[in-house]
Structure formats: structure tokens, C-alpha cells
Design a protein around this nucleic acid. Structure first.
Lengths: 220, 220
DNA sequence: TAATATTTTTAGATTTGTCTAAAATTAATT
DNA sequence: AATTAATTTTAGACAAATCTAAAAATATTA
């Protein structure tokens, strides 16, 4: 089964939303995709017709197994290309998302398998997100948000869940990247911001909003 | 100025045809692109509107300077990706064309410049065709068709002008690839076929049709 | 629970790129 | 030169993906 670029984009967005909320609704998908609810409804009919979606009118919707596999295929392509762009072409990690959005729709199976091998079958992309293997299998790691870890216990940045250019630029400013060691020194009651020590930098303060989107695992 | 995938495909095909014939006509472009003359006419209007084309109704057409630059941009992208697929992903050279047809429409300038550098700024693609630089400049080499070279004078394969899977499979069968040394031993009057010696192989015979599409330069 | 607000879907239009069939133009031939 | 043939363009239709505006369904609240 093959899909148009537009179908793939919808499938991917539904996948991401249903990870959060279980059932997805029309308006939130429209917001996510920067399109109109009416356009979403049109596409839902198409995807239901292709048997990728559990969908009853007015009731919300989610991908079925076939839909999830299709989504994981796109996610796999996206993240492999992001890895390629950063590791081989030396792009900065905040510049690769939009290019990978285009590359992910190239449809050759063999291309992706060869790319995967060429890159050394990486398990995580440059933002720390897991790269599904060809069967859709994902390696999970034990991580939690920086906003939840105890004080004075060093942790290693493992992924970043908000990947807007704005967010990634901010992290660059703080010299925070994947693998960076961070210790939380103080949590301010007032607005939830954190004083942190980034390895070999002087102390600094990050907002709760930033902290929530930075995921870490235990040091060592 | 940016172009749709469809516009880029037309621009590229017009470029290739006008290299051969100067002026291009509707039917031959339709044949080249496997589409209908009416569709060609529709696109010609668009491309004329974008000031890429010299075109008067019923009179034939060709790319102007802006059109040629646009074509060379696409050709550059196509050939760089072909080089990547063969050199880095280890595809066989007869398998890369259709994948590069998709990749060539990815539009990031920076992506292509970085890819070019990553590949070592190659001047020729895996079929021996020159890769335009970012200004559209092409390195020309002194080559001629295998069907025109004198007998008993070894020559080196520099490019192949017919790049169908069928042709490239045939060359693979003969163990002919870029850089292969070939000596023409005899030319048969009957059908123009050639007896040749491919370096370290026993003699064999190739048709005139094959010979015409293999280009060589002097040995050493 | 009736009225109001929100969400979702439908109906119909638009754009891009394609098509077929017919008309217009140009070329070839008797 | 007139007829025939070939080429090219126009006119109008269609599919995909989108949109706006209005209608339908569901949810909220007074």
C-alpha cells in the first residue's frame, strides 16, 4: 500500500496526537496541521476508505494497526534523514526538521534500508527520538522530564520533545544538547523555573516550559 | 523563483531535447514525458508566464537563459543524488535513476550545497555525465562515440548517453563501466556492429545501437 | 431541559495538473 | 493550388487537495 504526501502527513500527525490523547478530534488535528477542520474531515474519509483509521462521524478517531504501521514507516524515514543531515552533512540539529519533512516522502524501500545501513542502523535521531526499525519496532529508554527530577542529582539529556526552531535555538544558547549533563540546583515556587548547572557552564535559570520539554536519564 | 515538481520535470525535459534539436516541438516533448500534447501546451503557457521560455503558438519553443539556469539546477540536484546513491549507498548504477527523479525535487539550497561538499564536489555522475556547479557551470570533456573511433586504438569509457535500465543492464553484462578500456577490433559493414576487446575480457560483439551510446576519450 | 456554544460535517467552489475530443493551424502531397 | 495529413491548441471535464459558508450533531450552561 502506498500513500500520497498529504496522506502521509495526516497519518503522521494523527499518530503523534493519539500518543498523547488516545482518541483524536478534528479540531486538534486541524490545528496541528495548520489546516481547516473541513479539510481534515475530507481526509478522514479517505483514510477510513483505505482501512487505516477507526472513525465514526462526530465521535473522534485513531489509527488502527495498519495505520500505526504506516505512521511508523514515515517516522522511520523522517528520523533516518534527520540523522543523515546532522551526522553526515553537518547541519545543526535545529535546521533539519523541515528538510526531513520533504525527504520523508521519498518512497523507495531499498533507499531507506541502504540509508539505514550506511548510517550504522542508529537507534535514536539527533533530537533523541527513537528511530523505528523496518518492522516498526522502537527502542524505549527510561527517561523523564527535567522538570521532575530530584535536586542535586546529575542527569544526562536524552531527548527534546518540542522541536521547534525556537526551542532548539534556545537550547543551543544554553549549550544544552543530547548527552549534556545537567544538575538541578533549585526549583522556584513562583513560576516553576529551575536553576540548573550545565556541565562546565556557570549556573543559569530555565523556565518551566523549557524544562518540561527536556528529557533526561540517570548519569552513568 | 521556485517551481513545482511538474514544472521542474518539464523544464528538465525541454532542456535535454533542445540540446539535441535547438527548437523543441510539442509532440516530441509529449513523447519524452509520456503525456499528451494538450498537457504540454497547458504547461508551456505556465512556463512562458514565468518567463522561462521562448514560445510562440504553433512555432516551437526553447528555454531562455532563466529557463536554462532552472534546468541546470535540477540537473545538478539529480546528478549529485545519483552520485550519492552509487558512491555512498552502494546502489548499482542502473538502479539509481528513478530514485534520483524523486530526490531532485527537494528544494533546499543549503541541502544541495552541503551534499556537494560531502561528496567531494564531484564533476561527473556515475554515468559519466557532468554535474553542473552551483552557478550552472559544466565541465566539458573531449569525448566521442565508440562508434566513431579508429580501430586498434584503446579508449576509455567516459559516459553513457542512453541511461535506461535496459541499456545499463546490457553494459553490465559486457563488463563495461566508466573507466573501462575498450579497443575496437573490427567494424562489420552489414549492420554496423563492432567487435571489441574489453580490458581483460575475451572479444565480443556489440550492436551499432549500443556503440552509439557509449562515449570514450583517449587512453592515458 | 431549553437555549446557547462548540465541534464536526456537508455542499459547493477553487487550483493544479491532467485528460479527451474537437477545432485551428501548419505541412505535405497530389 | 487544393486536398489531405500531421501537428498544435482550445474547450471542457475530472481527480486530488484544499477552502468558505452553512447545516448538522454534540456539548455546555443557565
Amino acid at each position: 500500500m502506498s500513500f500520497t504526501t498529504s496522506e502521509e502527513n495526516y497519518i503522521k500527525s494523527i499518530y503523534h496526537l493519539q500518543q498523547e490523547t488516545g482518541l483524536v478530534n478534528t479540531n486538534s488535528l486541524a490545528a496541528e496541521m495548520q489546516t481547516r477542520p473541513a479539510s481534515v474531515t475530507d481526509m478522514l474519509k479517505k483514510l477510513k476508505g483505505k482501512k487505516l483509521l477507526q472513525y465514526e462521524k462526530y465521535k473522534g478517531f485513531k489509527l488502527n494497526e495498519a495505520g500505526k504501521k504506516a505512521a511508523l514507516d514515515v517516522v522511520r524515514k523522517h528520523r533516518l534523514w534527520e540523522f543523515f543531515l546532522v551526522e553526515k552533512l553537518k547541519f545543526e540539529w535545529d535546521k533539519v526538521h523541515s528538510i526531513a519533512e520533504d525527504l520523508e516522502h521519498i518512497s523507495s524501500e531499498e533507499l531507506i534500508q541502504r540509508l539505514d545501513n550506511f548510517l550504522g542502523n542508529p537507534a535514536f535521531d539527533p533530537h533523541g527520538d527513537p528511530i523505528p526499525d523496518k518492522h516498526g519496532k522502537i527502542q524505549v529508554i527510561d527517561q523523564q522530564s527535567l522538570s521532575n527530577i530530584p535536586l542535586h542529582k546529575p542527569a544526562i539529556v536524552s531527548s527534546v520533545s518540542n522541536q521547534t526552531v525556537q526551542m532548539l535555538e534556545m537550547l543551543k544558547h544554553y549549550h544544552i544538547t543530547l548527552g549534556t549533563s545537567i544538575t538541578v540546583l533549585k526549583r522556584f515556587e513562583f513560576d516553576g523555573s529551575l536553576e540548573i548547572k550545565v556541565l562546565k557552564q556557570s549556573n543559569c535559570i530555565i523556565s518551566e516550559q523549557v524544562a518540561k520539554n527536556v528529557f533526561v536519564h540517570d548519569a552513568q
